[in-house]
Design a protein around this nucleic acid. Structure first.
Length: 673
DNA sequence: TAGCCTCGAGTTCA
DNA sequence: CTCGAGGCTA
């Protein structure tokens, strides 16, 4: 008895759902309601009552369940006239090719299929409604069926047209226009600078910043954010005669909508694949983030015949690249003490794929930076590899896990136990102990890999030699014997004698490299060269007064003082004497003579990877012609040599300063001419 | 004295 | 590559 009643109720519920869906469709999709709103509400209320009494009858797609997300009192939920579907993604050429084959099979032809690609903007999908040519409402995508009405905020975005231009040539009475709201990177950076200046926490990425800006309750705040939009499609468009997506984009553009200029038309799938790869590299040139390309079958007739599966159109795909950001757990914050005694905190991360490589460590710079970003051990954090290669921890995915606490530098050096100091106004904490093992070890590593660049002895070997107590100083490295080296893990008869030979050969490195390798504070590559050029030998330098040192290019009172102080230390003087006796070079050769050539006075900067030269080779070739090669683009830069996968910051700066760009062919031309 | 420029230092992964 | 900071210049 009871069961048959339940069955009746179940049938009625299903009937109501079907009717409600049908009337919603009549109303929203076709704009031709068959019943009044009051009648609709009566049906709806009946279903709600049934579902309240029999919760087991509630289905996920019930019209009553469309308010899925937690209710917000800020924004009204609105239903989209046509649902905003999501795109199935592909990540490989093979998957793309497979999709193409499916398209051909379903259309029964491989002829005449045209694709359109557009950058896939990492922003917020928005649906805009125009009635009789006037903007009346805009909503976020939400769950695809209902979104949040953010009309007042959208009105503040100047890139959104408030009316359809050229309405006289037959604009549909109801027009649904889809687009992606985003925050340009320049605006994102400016916003974060402002937030930091106001003592607030910066936003982790442009997408979050855009979302936050658009969901401001107070639209005057939204108005201050430089949001923009790319329009990429049509929803409802009754009576509009366009036959394909490409034509639709053109129509939109002509009627006042901001469509992306990098939309491309492709006659073959191979051409589509090519675009997907080309844009993966070109994307950093854009002032907004894209995470792939959207690919659509152009013809609306084809689109209709292909249809959709589970709300995902068969006629479109998102080609997505490996993400440049990822979320992972920050397991521990470690401290490393550098060759100058600076304490460097670094993050040990749960390994995670970012931009195609597995990242497990990242530098955290200093205490201040960690706390400004509010990063804690145990947090879930966002890791990013942006235009550059080096991963950074952007910030925590709030809230903090239980039991975490703000990061604090240790009071004592983790290696030697001496009390840590932090000079007023400086960012870095330091271990002041000159005899701290970290300094000796790190400076030896710096010697073998940078200053002298000894082949066959790398960081690992130096660490092992140090641990075994065989080499604890530079002179000890030069007194190392083959027999001793063979005790070290990883060395055999041959590799040991080769390594000894390279150590011996490294005694010939030029004076300026020796100076660099001594680890004098404030003396890097350039200053070492300038010192060598100015004083010519160690005898003049070692006893030079601070005022004499100030004469050198790029050295002012601060640096001169620290250099003079270093040379007045007995231990350092002894080290110099010992190295000299061992046969290292302490006077200038002819390697620093300036080269006169056709490019004298010109300054070039190189970015990206060149095909026929390494960066060092290209730099050497330019220098051989008299040019200087710098590291950063400035107003004085003659030209920026751009290879494959260039760094974004140099490129951006060069554009801004109108520094000429040279490709590899132009470089070769320059070197010949 | 401000703002540009250059330098030093530490940096990841395969 | 990016940051911070010292040096240089207008």
């Amino acid at each position: 008895m009871a069961s048959s009643k339940t069955a009746t109720v179940g049938r009625r519920a299903a009937e109501l759902r079907e009717q409600l869906d049908y009337h919603l469709y009549r109303y929203h999709v076709l704009d031709e309601p068959e019943i009044s709103d009051a009648d609709y509400d009566r049906l709806y209320d009946e279903l709600v009552a049934l579902e309240d009494a029999h919760p087991e009858l509630i289905t996920r797609d019930s019209p009553t369940q469309r308010v899925g997300a937690p209710p917000s009192d800020k924004f009204q939920k609105v239903e989209h006239p046509t649902p905003m579907g999501s795109l199935e993604k592909v990540t490989t050429d093979e998957a793309l090719e497979k999709w193409h084959e499916d398209v051909c099979k379903r259309l029964g032809t491989s002829e005449g299929i045209v694709y359109v690609t557009e950058p896939k903007i990492d922003g917020l999908s928005i649906n805009l409604i125009y009635e009789n040519g006037a903007f009346v409402r805009g909503a976020t995508r939400g769950d695809g069926v209902r979104g949040e009405d953010v009309t007042p905020n959208l009105r503040t975005i100047k890139a959104i047209s408030m009316r359809v231009i050229g309405a006289d040539d037959g604009v549909p009475s109801l027009l649904e226009v889809r687009g992606e709201v985003y925050l340009p990177l320049s605006g994102f950076n400016a916003l974060n600078e402002r937030l930091v200046a106001e003592g607030k926490k910066p936003t982790p990425n442009p997408r979050n910043a855009a979302a936050g800006s658009l969901r401001q309750k107070d639209s005057t705040i939204t108005a201050q954010r430089p949001l923009s939009i790319w329009i990429h499609g049509l929803g409802v468009r009754d009576g509009l005669r366009v036959d394909g997506h490409w034509e639709a984009l053109n129509w939109l553009r002509e009627h006042g909508f901001r469509t992306n200029p990098y939309a491309e038309r492709h006659e073959t799938v191979a051409s589509v694949a090519q675009a997907c790869h080309a844009w993966e590299k070109k994307r950093i040139e854009l002032d907004y983030e894209i995470d792939g390309l959207v690919i659509k079958v152009d013809s609306f007739d084809h689109q209709r015949r292909l249809g959709a599966l589970h709300g995902r159109p068969r006629w479109a795909r998102a080609f997505k690249w490996a993400p440049m950001t990822a979320q992972t757990k920050l397991e521990r914050i470690h401290i490393r003490v550098g060759r100058t005694g600076a304490l460097n905190p670094w993050a040990q991360l749960a390994p995670v794929e970012v931009g195609g490589v597995t990242v497990s460590t990242a530098t955290l710079h200093n205490e201040e930076d960690i706390n400004r970003k509010d990063i804690r051990e145990g947090d879930e954090v966002i890791v990013q590899r942006a235009g550059d290669v080096i991963p950074q921890v952007v910030g925590p995915v709030l809230p903090h896990a239980k039991g975490t606490r703000a990061f604090k530098m240790p009071a004592n050096c983790p290696l030697c136990g001496v009390e840590i100091v932090k000079p007023e106004g400086e960012a870095m904490h330091r271990c002041p102990n000159r005899a701290c093992p970290s300094r000796g070890l790190e400076s030896l590593i710096n010697w073998v890999q940078a200053a002298a660049d000894i082949e066959g002895v790398g960081e690992q070997s130096v660490r092992r030699l140090w641990d075994l107590g065989l080499v604890r100083s530079l002179p000890e490295l030069y007194r190392l014997t083959k027999e001793q080296l063979m005790e070290v893990e990883g060395y055999g008869e041959i590799s040991a004698s080769n390594a000894i030979a390279s150590i011996d050969a490294s005694k010939q490195v030029p004076f300026h490299r020796v100076l660099f390798g001594l680890n004098i504070p404030d003396v890097g590559w350039v200053t070492a060269q300038n010192l060598a050029r100015h004083f010519e030998n160690i005898d003049r330098l070692i006893d030079a007064a601070q005022e004499d040192i100030e004469e050198v290019d790029g050295i002012g009172p601060d640096r001169a003082e620290s250099i003079a102080e270093w040379f007045s230390d007995d231990a350092n003087r002894a080290l110099v004497g010992e190295l000299r006796e061992l046969g290292l070079r302490f006077e200038i050769g002819d390697e620093l003579r300036p080269v006169e050539g056709p490019l004298t006075g010109k300054i070039y900067v190189i970015t990206g990877t060149l095909e026929n030269y390494s960066r060092d080779e290209a730099a050497a070739a330019l220098e051989a012609k008299g040019a200087k090669v710098g590291n950063s683009v400035s107003g004085k830069t003659t030209g920026l040599v751009v290879g494959e996968e260039p760094g974004s910051s140099k490129l951006t700066k060069a554009r801004k300063l109108e520094v000429p760009l040279l490709d590899e062919a132009a470089l070769e031309e320059l070197l010949r001419g």
